[in-house]
Design a protein around this nucleic acid. Structure first.
Length: 742
DNA sequence: TGAGACGCTGTTTTT
DNA sequence: CAGCGTCTCA
């Protein structure tokens, strides 16, 4: 979790490089050209593993070295991590001034800009960002208030409704057209959907809420409708770079166009073969439209792959060769030798998991660190069996993708209090708080809500509300809590602690069966909160860059090598020595949902992305039998993507069903495993260091952020500390559990 | 009108 | 395998 998207202060530093970092030695011809063409529009078509990141990093350093002020560079990436990584590598290459480059996702940058300029659009600066879950919650409220969907079972779920409305926005088409093209079976619900959309829109504006799409739309509107603002921003950001351009949607393309004009110093980098976000409105044809959007675009292709061995590339080329529509290129590698990828048919899911573990141990024995190995899959739940097996064998892993910490109900509960504090208009969160009171249900909550809406001061309104006897006390307690929390000068962690004292009984009542497990999440949340001196950026980050549930503190994560389990989407842009792709069964991969040819093609690209992550060893696995929900075994068919590949490119491993396995028809029970505990945090709090003890340059240790260096004193008992793994944090000694190392 | 019990369905991917 | 809607009782 990292919030210093706009690093505002510059750490003192001397340039490290005496020779120009961007020399022809480190880059090939095409990369060099891309890194050093700084004026005018440039499109880089970069195949997988072709040194795209390297090129961007060198270009960043080159720009700064040429005298471009880092503040004037905007780097738009797909994840926050990617931006950090690039900025940090550029800093190593040149000097720390590169850290002043503004970088992040479209959504995160939109958020920062809109906090400053939202008033042009009729929004207050304290708007709340909604995640998908929130959006679904609002749609649900609207659905029931309009009494839609009651009788008819066919009425689309809140999930689907939100997906449809969002997709229409992101593709820039009407809901009617979208239904025609992708959801023809829902055509009868068009009017209902439009009605819901209008109510949803109105609800958001009235209550100071923005969903992910609004962040983009409003950024675009800001630029399109307010020329003065557009000019100011376009002036400030004289150089634009956009990574993963194949996954941008039309709104993002328009934002880029508006931000870049009239200089058009903009470089976009992407690979149409790796476009995997069409469900979000992205269209890989976007990348081909770029030259039309920016006449005079210089097009550069990076086709040499530096990552994988030729045997692996031969397979990945074969995968993508069968794509219906592709514009590009065949990758080649100079790393000739290497083993052919392995296809292995495991007996069932359990055997698949055991096979992976065996191979991991073998690879480890060959000297490959655990962190250089990854297991990839189509959907989050595909790794459950494997996670159990790994826990059994005491192999440490880190899971990416799938459920986020902030998606669980108990975390959402806590966040709702904090949200209401910052944005008293946020009726979604109010609703959540009210429903937690005993004897208060949806109906009562609605009544209270309508009163709050009319009132100037929500807290007074709460206190004076003519509540029923059975729940009056609860309402007052809530008002008291919120009053207490709004005391000026309270640090976020202090607010959290007060809040927990109030919430814990509710928490234990609501989740009585498994609250100890959930309790750990709250501990984790508290530690994350320690990195913030203000609530707003914390809340923004919980929506824009949500942490994973078992993200370990740096202290534990850094000391041990961990295997990576990841959805393919979250593995984008990364690479490992050894990669396993599991569950390559028809129905799971490609997903059974992918019925339309376009969706099927995207599944193919997804497999391509997964396979191109591997440097040396690549394993394709599938279970021959899968459990259907009713405990019967059914035959799993091999994914058509694998079946259609030329067999001579791969080693086949059906025979290697481990001999120690029991009778193949006997279900192999997993050895009883001790309940998996995602590393408890048993740190005994060290004595808080006295402020006088901390001096710039000192090494300190934080339970979550790991080792860091004190940069400067920022206030009473408050210091800026730079953590290499998490960026700059402002920490208060009373709240952060800091340990002095030197 | 809230709360708890029961039975059904449907299940990607992420900002 | 939960998360939803429906039903019943308080």
């Amino acid at each position: 979790m990292q919030r210093s998207l706009f690093p505002l202060d510059t750490p003192p530093s001397a340039p490290k490089a005496t020779v120009s970092p961007v020399s022809r030695q480190h880059l090939n011809e095409a990369q060099y050209e891309a890194a050093t063409t700084v004026d005018g529009p440039v499109l880089v078509i970069a195949g997988a593993g072709s040194g795209k990141t390297r090129t961007l990093v060198y270009r960043l350093a080159h720009l700064v070295e040429q005298g471009v002020s880092p503040e004037r560079i905007l780097l738009l990436t797909f994840t926050r991590k990617a931006a950090q990584e690039m900025v940090s590598r550029a800093s190593l290459l040149l000097d720390d001034s590169c850290r002043r480059v503004m970088g992040g996702t479209f959504h995160a940058v939109a958020n920062l800009l809109l906090r400053r300029h939202a008033h042009h659009l009729g929004y207050a600066p304290n708007f709340t960002i909604l995640d998908q879950d929130d959006a679904e919650g609002i749609v649900n409220l609207i659905k029931s208030s309009l009494s839609l969907g009651g009788e008819s079972k066919r009425f689309p779920s809140k999930r689907l409704i939100v997906a449809i409305l969002s997709k229409a926005v992101n593709k820039g088409i009407s809901v009617a057209d979208l239904l025609d093209s992708e959801y023809s079976h829902l055509h009868d619900f068009l009017d209902d959907l439009l009605l819901i959309r209008d109510h949803y829109q109105k609800f958001k504006v009235e209550h100071g809420l923005m969903d992910y799409d609004d962040l983009l739309i409003n950024w675009q509107r800001l630029l399109a409708e307010h020329p003065a603002v557009r000019e100011e921003l376009a002036n400030r950001f004289a150089y634009l770079m956009v990574d993963e351009y194949q996954d941008t949607n039309p709104i993002q393309a328009e934002i880029v166009r508006l931000m870049a004009a009239p200089r058009n110093n903009v470089m976009v980098v992407g690979d149409d073969s790796q476009s995997i976000y069409s469900f979000r409105g992205a269209d890989f044809r976007n990348i081909m439209d770029f030259p039309r959007l920016f006449p005079g675009t210089k097009i550069i292709r990076l086709e040499e792959n530096y990552r994988s061995t030729q045997p692996i590339l031969s397979v990945t080329n074969a995968i993508i060769e069968r794509a219906q529509e592709k514009y590009t290129k065949t990758l080649y590698s100079k790393i000739e030798s290497g083993e052919a990828p392995v296809v292995h048919a495991a007996r069932d899911e359990g055997a698949q998991a055991r096979f992976v573990v065996e191979k991991i141990l073998a690879r480890q024995a060959e000297g490959v660190p655990l962190s250089e190995i990854a297991v990839l899959f189509r959907s989050g739940y595909h790794s459950f069996k494997l996670e159990l097996e790994l826990a059994n064998r005491h192999l440490d892993f880190e899971k990416r993708g799938g459920l986020k910490l902030t998606e669980s109900a108990h975390i959402k509960d806590v966040l709702a209090y904090l949200r209401v504090l910052l944005n008293p208009q946020d009726n979604l969160s109010w609703n959540r708080l009210l429903l937690q009171l005993d004897k208060v249900g949806p109906k009562t909550a609605q009544n209270v809500l309508s009163r709050l809406k009319a009132a100037d001061d929500p807290l007074t309104a709460l206190r004076t509300y003519p509540a029923g006897k059975s729940w009056q006390a609860g309402l007052l307690a809530l008002a008291d809590l919120l009053t207490e929390l709004s005391a000026p000068g309270l640090a976020p962690v202090a607010q959290f602690d007060l809040l927990m004292a109030y919430y814990r009984p509710t928490f234990e009542r609501l989740y009585h069966d498994d609250y100890p497990r959930r309790s750990r999440d709250l501990d984790q949340l508290r530690m994350i909160l320690e990195g913030y001196t203000e609530l707003q950026p914390f809340l923004d980050d919980t929506s824009l860059d949500p942490p994973q549930p078992n993200d370990l503190p740096a202290e534990l994560a850094g000391s041990r090598e961990r295997l990576v389990l990841s959805t393919i989407h979250s593995a984008k842009g990364l690479e490992w020595d050894t990669v396993f792709i599991i569950h390559l069964v028809e129905g799971k991969f490609p997903s059974a949902q992918a019925a339309l040819p376009e969706q099927y093609e995207e599944e193919r690209r997804l497999l391509y992305v997964a396979a191109t992550r591997a440097r040396k060893r690549l394993f394709f696995l599938y279970p021959r039998e899968v459990m259907s929900p009713d405990r019967y075994r059914t035959a799993g068919a091999i994914s058509p993507f694998l079946e259609e590949l030329p067999p001579n490119l791969m080693q086949s491993g059906r025979e290697s069903t481990p001999s120690w396995l029991a009778d193949p028809w006997q279900s192999e029970p997993m050895a009883a495993s001790p309940a998996y505990t995602p590393a408890t945090l048993t740190t005994t709090a060290p004595e808080p260091p006295a402020a006088a003890e901390l001096k710039p340059g000192m090494a300190v240790k934080h339970p979550f952020f790991g080792q860091g260096t004190v940069e400067r004193e920022k206030g009473p008992r408050t210091f800026d500390i730079y953590f290499p793994r998490h960026g700059r944090k402002t920490l208060h000694l009373d709240y952060a559990r800091l340990e002095v190392l030197s």
